[in-house]
Write a protein that binds this DNA or RNA. Structure first.
Lengths: 229, 229
DNA sequence: CTATGAGTCCCGCAC
DNA sequence: GTGCGGGGCTCATAG
């Protein structure tokens, strides 16, 4: 089966209602309509479309009082109505229907996996207990232990903002509630730790471990050069 | 000045490096290149482009060993390289250069403003002290007082998830630290309060106020029908 | 410039 | 279906 995409360049206006409400005045723009029901209105700037709808919309075409084409895209909770005032072009092109999409590298999940196999970056004597250890407040990325600490709660991020510290805080509290007599520590492991996050971590006595950006590089020696606060 | 957009439909592959790393195998896709330096690669599904770069990239065009066009988009910290294997079409169209963009309605900021002028939805006797009241943990959306409570910390959301409750918790703690002898309450005001958020709020003794979806409608009578937990 | 938070966030995955 | 969290989130705004 061949998938197609319809590309319209036209002077258009649009009204969206659903999670919010937006109106778009008439200007010349580019409209992409995909076979899966997605629709995008792009102007001359930026990566985000002005208006859009996700897959599984139903398209109804009507005419308004002045004979202009009106495209109505409806889903259960939302609808986007596009009025075409002046169509410059309207082409439909075939596309691959088997696009495997992006291959990602360096994701948080890969970083977590790598850390699980390189626990020495957290310092000597750290032993992994479990990945995605469940708590009342959600799963702990990496749960470890040390000779002098029963539970080391490790939160893994690529970029760590203060929200990551709050997350650790909730996990640590949850583990302390579960094991009132155990010693529990919180650790943040991230490639990019923002200053505000570091500051908060210091206040909460959570250790911060900065992972070198070259962590995937097997030629790079680690030598346990993790930065500790 | 006329802004243009270049629309290429071609069999293409792409490599991105920057905040992460991605590779995209060769398939037929649609490439949008905007005058501001933005570039998007769209396949046949979804609202999100497979690969993209924001504004202010520099485009360099080369040829690889087999004479294929290679488009390199570079910014300071990232770069995207697209190889065109088989070009079906390559058109450049003029667009409006004065697109005023979306007019939004029903945003959180408008909701906050509306609530500030309709404090009665929180119950009788609520008096607004300040919008965006600053604390150590960030600004409180609405700070109010009541005859029997010195500080009512109100967090406004369109959609409230558990994260909103954690936010209130931090604000309430911050205000309690600042005024140890004052009485402080936390309140969540949202159009859509998710069950997990409500559950958490109950546990923390924060009041939940559900704002009717018709809050902007002036014909709708309010009658203080706020839902209290 | 960085930091912060909203967004029609989108999206995949688990339940 | 809904909830939850990652993402190259994007984008606007404030400092």
């Amino acid at each position: 089966m061949i998938e197609v995409m319809r590309i319209i360049t036209a002077s258009c206006s649009a009204v969206y209602t659903g999670r919010g409400n937006t109106t778009l005045p008439t200007r010349k723009r580019v409209i992409l309509i995909k076979d899966d029901g997605s629709v995008l209105i792009h102007n001359e700037t930026g990566t985000k479309p002005l208006n859009y709808m996700g897959a599984k919309t139903v398209l109804t075409v009507k005419e308004d009082g002045e004979g202009k084409q009106v495209l109505m895209f409806d889903s259960r909770r939302e609808n986007l109505t596009i009025t075409l005032h002046d169509i410059s072009s309207d082409t439909t092109i075939p596309l691959s229907d088997d696009d495997p999409g992006l291959e990602r590298d360096g994701t948080e999940s890969q970083l977590q996996e790598w850390l699980a196999e390189n626990m020495e970056v957290f310092g000597p004597d750290h032993e992994l207990i479990q990945r995605e250890h469940p708590t009342l407040h959600g799963p702990v990325d990496l749960m470890a232990k040390r000779g002098d600490c029963d539970y080391v709660v490790i939160e893994v991020k690529r970029v760590a903002t203060p929200a990551a510290i709050h997350q650790i805080n909730r996990y640590v509290e949850a583990v302390r509630e579960e094991f009132p007599d155990a010693t529990v520590e919180g650790v943040l492991a991230a490639i990019d730790i923002r200053p505000k996050a570091e500051e908060l971590a210091l206040k909460k006595s959570f250790k911060c471990v900065t992972i070198p950006a070259t962590w995937r590089d097997p030629t790079e020696r680690l030598d346990n050069r993790a930065v500790e606060l």
